[in-house]
Amino acid sequence: MKRWHWISLGILTIISIIVELTMVSETEHGTHWWSVIPLFYILFGFVGCVVIVFFSKAIGKIFLQKKEDYYDTL
């Protein structure tokens, strides 16, 4: 990732926030409980990603992951 990649992602985020706050009307945003939380999808994307990775890795480490020859060594 070069610096200009990060800058463009930042600009895109700022545009999306501006659009969200100015152009998206209340009704269009849906009527769910999270519709009133500003920047909900930013939070959800980040937290969701972290939760998925840590949850998966944890159950992998504890229960599911075995050596590659697991089924061959019977």
């Binding site: 985020t13 999306s16 920047l39 999808y41 930013i42 939070l43 959800f44 994307g45 980040f46 969701g48």
Partner: peptide, 8 residues
């Protein structure tokens, strides 16, 4: 969508 993807 854009926000979700960028922050993923």
């Amino acid at each position: 969508t854009v926000q979700l993807l960028i922050f993923t």
